[in-house]
């Protein structure tokens, strides 16, 4: 990953306080509390892993942050701005990006068009009726991103025929479009081969320092290598927070992950 591929906005360095801040966020689905009273603060440029067993509320947490779900209670601030009631696209335009656990791509379009749409979504001219020229700066940015995730040979291939691992790489390219400041990666390593996992770790650790991310990952090896801090979730609550080595050696975490149960 080259740093030139991803723009570095001036705002990223000037932003005071936290990149992301959640205060008392809860999400209820009927009687089920998928999230309960979540407090979370991510500094600009921080790399954070969110771990937890299935059903711990990790993806629901992401959905609340991106605006796919409105939280039942609590507030969300993005780069100092209260975005709790903002629609998803408004949060994206403020530098938030995400990838999905199950690839959500545009299967009827080519790799180039997928990434081009991602670049267009955070720029002007989303409703433009004029075609872009081949030397258009957004088209150039799209091609650079495709190269950054090693898919240049497949740039004009429809996404529907890509292999699974390639679709996961494309997911990441979409999240890197424009000028990302905070990216939410939802299990990016799921289903990848050991070589692809190595590539993924390289891409994540090679991201420019001003880009922070939160990563949900079941593969502890990947998660602990790419994160500076770790947040453990269990039953919709934050259960522990600390440095990777603290979390790794924590007996409670080990008991939970080894399946001995947590009381």
């Amino acid at each position: 990953m080259t740093t030139e591929t991803i723009k570095s906005p001036a705002a990223a360095t000037s932003s005071a306080g936290h990149a992301l801040e959640l205060r008392g966020v809860s999400k209820l689905f009927g009687a089920l509390a998928a999230l309960s009273d979540i407090d979370l603060a991510i500094r600009p440029g921080e790399r954070r892993a969110v771990l937890g067993s299935n059903g711990a509320g990790k993806t629901t947490l992401f959905n609340c942050i991106t605006g796919d779900f409105l939280p039942s209670t609590g507030g969300i601030r993005l780069f100092g701005e209260d975005v709790t009631r903002f629609p998803a696209q408004e949060r994206i335009r403020r530098g938030l990006r995400r990838t999905y656990q199950i690839s959500l791509l545009f299967n009827g379009l080519t790799v180039r068009d997928n990434v081009y749409l991602a670049c267009r979504g955070v720029s002007r001219g989303r409703f433009s009726f004029l075609r872009s020229r081949a030397d258009d700066s957004l088209m150039q940015a799209a091609e650079d991103l495709v190269a950054a995730v090693h898919l240049s040979d497949l740039i004009d291939t429809p996404v529907s025929v890509l292999a699974y691992g390639q679709q996961r790489q494309l997911e990441i390219a979409l999240a890197l479009a424009g000028a990302p400041r905070l990216i939410l990666f939802d299990e990016p390593a799921a289903g990848l081969s050991p070589t692809e996992r190595k590539d993924l770790v390289e891409i994540l650790t090679g991201l420019p320092a001003h880009i922070g991310y939160v990563i949900i990952e079941h593969d502890m090896d990947v998660a602990l290598r790419v994160a500076e801090r770790v947040t453990m979730m269990h039953n919709g609550r934050i259960f522990k927070e600390g440095l990777p080595e603290e979390i790794e050696n924590d007996p409670e975490v080990q008991a939970l992950y080894l399946g001995d149960g947590h009381e």
């Binding site: 796919d68 791509l105 009827g108 749409l117 979504g121 989303r126």
Partner: peptide, 26 residues
């Protein structure tokens, strides 16, 4: 128009509206 940004984005909306919102489109 089908190959202009508006048309491409419309095809994106057809394939995956949720992802389009997550890319900044209304």
């Amino acid at each position: 128009v089908s190959r202009a940004p508006f048309g491409l984005a419309l095809q994106g909306v057809r394939d995956n509206p949720r992802r389009m919102a997550a890319l900044g489109f209304n």
